[in-house]
Nucleic acid binder design. Structure first.
Lengths: 118, 118
DNA sequence: CGGCATCCAGGATGATACTG
DNA sequence: CAGTATCATCCTGGATGCCG
């Protein structure tokens, strides 16, 4: 986690920030595409190219990065098949599945209040 | 919303992304400090300087920006009192209050899985 | 097919100084 | 007190090209 100098004499660890479970959780899904990816994986395994096809606007690089981040955060499981041509499948982990109900509520909340702001 | 050129011949509006209620919701609270601010405002009104004192690491500028964003998104209500010295109080809107339960679940989820990843 | 490496633009964030 | 203005910096994400 980043630190920040105070008065040039000492640094204050920002752990009190990361200790916030919410910040922690939101950061995990804060990427621009992560939520979309999780949503698509919620009921099926998908290959890299399939995801890329579903989201034509995401670049391969970003898809890679976001998938890696999700994998690193334990939300997505990556399975590589030693075949030719290579095949890689992505699926949600139990941790991510637990998140889906919250996901739904968030979605409902977003839907309810969408467009109410100027 | 940003657009992106496709084949240099036309642009595809990314509305299909913003149509995702989840993305919409997460973007609202995606700021670095927004969640902390909402959390602190969940049970009390607070003045600008009080918030600034609670989060010593946030700069006045960022606090202003995040509060403005929250206000713009209809999550925070800003009340200015015509006094000397000036006084401004911030409080959550009903929309934000509706969000608190989800907030709690997210927090619990984050807490449960915190530290499980490498 | 499923990436990674490199370069780069723009937005987010920070430091600092000033004001109604 | 509660900001605003300005400049500097960092980081995210995009474009493009190469590789096992």
């Amino acid at each position: 986690m980043t630190k920040r100098k105070l008065n040039s004499t000492f640094t204050l660890n920002e752990s009190f920030l990361t200790e916030c479970d919410l910040t922690y959780a939101v950061n995990k899904i804060g990427g621009r595409w992560k939520i979309l990816i999780i949503d698509k994986l919620s009921d099926q395994k998908l290959r890299f190219s399939e995801l890329n096809k579903i989201f034509p606007l995401i670049t391969e690089r970003m898809l890679t990065l976001q998938l890696r981040a999700l994998e690193c955060d334990g939300l997505v499981k990556r399975t590589v098949y030693a075949e030719v041509p290579p095949r890689v499948e992505y699926e949600l982990t139990p941790m991510a599945l637990e998140f889906l109900p919250i996901f739904k509520q968030l979605s409902a909340w977003g839907n309810k209040h969408k467009g109410l702001t100027k």
